Simulated assay, not measured.
Amino acid sequence: MTSAPVGRPWQRPELRDDGTRHRPVGWVELFFDLVFVVIIAVLAHDLEQHIESVGLLTFLLQFVAVFWVWNGFTYYTERFESAGLENRLFVFLAILAVAGLAVWGEDGLGHNYLGFAIAYLAARALNIALWLRAAIHVPRFRRAAWSFAAGFAVAGILILISFVVDEQWRLLLWAAAVVADIASPAVTQRFQADLPPISRDKFPERFGLFTMILLGETIAGVIRGAAESNAESGLSATTLLEAALGLAIGFGLWWLYFDFIARRPTRPVFTVALLWVYLHIAAMASIVVVGAGIAAGIAGDETLPLPGPVSAFLFGGLGAALIAFGLLELTLDRNDNEPTHPRLSPALKFVVGAGLVAVAVAQPAMSTTAAFVIAIAALAVQASYGAIVYYRQR
């Protein structure tokens, strides 16, 4: 991992240019990511209790905001990481803000809105302050930093206005604020094009670790669903089978992401890398939605068909995840030894993903077991293709 700190205890920001040198993820970054385990668990559990369109909308609005907090600090570390004590202080302050997101995360756009919104503003304000601090010492980053600050200023004004309006307007203002915040990097292309490229190992690895947190919550949802069934009436053979199938769906998602996406870096072009980040929002949110569908299916009445909203979450989330995975593949760099086909591999995900979305819309009556089997079959198509081309190459 990272070597012992050297140099001044309090260090100025310096733009990193590591070239192709391997940069491992540091212990402080791993500790920072642990805090997001809690907020993701809160959002996922809240979603499991509200398997309907409004619950999905509020989850997405909260999830995008939480992801952007994580991404902001992750990208700052990518550009200006240091071994100084100031880095640890700033990380701890960020942890406090993220902890606030978790404390007020449940119904965070409802009765807990004030606390959740203030925690978001605090986290983003700290991140923006770090960018502006870096801009003071690194002139070539100033325009990008000011663009980030401008986007946050617009978001902050909208959120402050949302404190004094009705709930329906509050959601619209929150959505507009988050969009303004996450869109700000898109206008910095000309400012960042000549900056050192992002690392080809550490930055993708951070996204892989965050994806692992989301997959872990999917597994936790399966276990919670089985535990609830056990507490109510004991574990039946059907529930045990459904739990095993639910774990298989989570395993399949892990297989696809880490076989097709995580093992390759994005192309070294700023606009492509930014698209890669945005597509991760869709992929990651879809994983949580799938997990909520699995948990609700296991906890439901096994004598009845899978409820329509649960079916929509399961198949719609899985279809969206596959489509996002396919789009992510198109952003990745390829070398001469890459075994997957540049068009066939993503096309498989698009076709099967679109089919799953169609099932989500139709909501045909079926048992939970049958729905889980269909989901596993959809994942198995992709995993089988990957296994064939990967092992054939060897």
Results as ranks from 00 to 15, higher is better:
240 L>R: 09
229 S>V: 12
298 I>T: 04
266 T>I: 08
243 A>M: 12
267 R>C: 06
238 T>D: 07
253 L>T: 11
310 V>S: 03
309 P>F: 10
302 E>K: 04
264 R>T: 10
258 F>V: 13
239 T>S: 00
218 T>A: 12
253 L>C: 13
288 V>D: 00
267 R>M: 08
229 S>I: 12
259 D>W: 12
256 L>Q: 13
295 A>Q: 15
314 L>K: 01
295 A>K: 15
312 A>T: 15
238 T>H: 03
318 L>W: 02
227 A>N: 13
228 E>V: 14
285 A>Y: 01
316 G>S: 08
319 G>C: 07
302 E>R: 11
290 V>S: 06
227 A>V: 12
262 A>G: 14
234 G>E: 11
228 E>T: 15
253 L>F: 13
239 T>M: 10
253 L>R: 10
260 F>P: 02
234 G>W: 08
244 A>V: 14
252 G>M: 03
273 A>I: 00
318 L>R: 00
247 L>R: 04
257 Y>T: 01
226 A>V: 13
311 S>I: 02
303 T>F: 02
301 D>L: 07
234 G>V: 01
277 V>I: 11
295 A>D: 10
290 V>P: 07
234 G>Q: 08
220 A>C: 06
292 A>K: 04
257 Y>Q: 06
249 I>K: 03
231 A>L: 15
293 G>A: 07
315 F>W: 02
271 T>E: 10
265 P>W: 01
283 A>K: 01
217 E>H: 02
223 I>W: 10
264 R>A: 14
245 L>V: 03
218 T>S: 13
222 V>P: 04
281 I>W: 09
267 R>N: 07
266 T>K: 06
283 A>L: 14
258 F>D: 11
299 A>E: 11
256 L>I: 15
306 L>R: 01
234 G>S: 09
299 A>K: 04
265 P>M: 02
273 A>R: 12
220 A>S: 15
265 P>S: 06
261 I>C: 05
272 V>L: 11
264 R>E: 09
246 G>L: 04
233 S>T: 10
279 L>V: 02
226 A>N: 00
293 G>T: 08
255 W>N: 13
302 E>C: 04
225 G>I: 11
242 E>K: 05
219 I>S: 00
218 T>P: 03
224 R>D: 13
306 L>Y: 00
259 D>Q: 15
273 A>M: 02
270 F>I: 10
219 I>F: 11
227 A>P: 01
306 L>D: 00
286 S>E: 02
314 L>H: 00
280 H>I: 04
